[in-house]
Amino acid sequence: MALIEVTGLVKSFKDGERETRVLKGIDLEVGRGEFVSIVGRSGAGKSTLMYQMSLLDEPTEGDVLVEGRSTREMATEEETLMRLTEFGYVFQDYALLPDLSALENVVLPLLMQGKSKGEAEAIAARALAKVELTHRLKNLPSQMSGGEQQRAAIARAIAHAPKLLFADEPTANLDRQSSGQVVTIFKELHAAGQTIIMVTHEEEYARAAGRIVTIDDGKVLSDVSLSEQ
């Protein structure tokens, strides 16, 4: 069974009378341990697809199945719980809470999962060590570089060992060196078994994944597994 499966996914936006169909029927399966890049030109619908898959938005038609379970009729609380425990998110801009230090940003969702403060801090420190931020634990986001913030955000996304890591253009705001670091981290995570779905613009980073799905005009244009090439 696929870890996550998208069937007949349609998303349209109403703007008064006019209705814009952004996703026009997408079917996609991602298995456990896969690293999938989603590419396509700007406005193709990559982000929109990611929001539907990661339960941040409600599709107009179709369904998202997580481990075979439909999420169509799922209650809001259950979706929130699934995002908390099963998913991890890395956004394009670093998205750390400005009043919390790097460590505290990682601790917060762990506390929400019911971990004790000590346990949460230990897990968070380990996650931050993985992204080489041990020297920045106490820094507020405003006291970190863009690359450091994005690495802290990755630590927050993976600390609870999610089944699925979503990343929407995680390197878009970073310089080459920091981007390279982020992609390297993703590769390492993948090597350790982490399932990753990453949207990206950059051909080079897309090739870090084992599979590249190209979206165009709200449909899947191609779906290529690199090892099979």
Binding site: L56, E77, T80, L81, M82, R83, L84, T85, F87, G88, Y89, F91, A95, L97, L108, P109, M112, R156, A157
Partner: peptide, 9 residues
């Protein structure tokens, strides 16, 4: 929004 997105109630 981000906090809610990552599952904070």
């Amino acid at each position: 929004g981000i906090a809610k997105g990552i599952g904070i109630a």
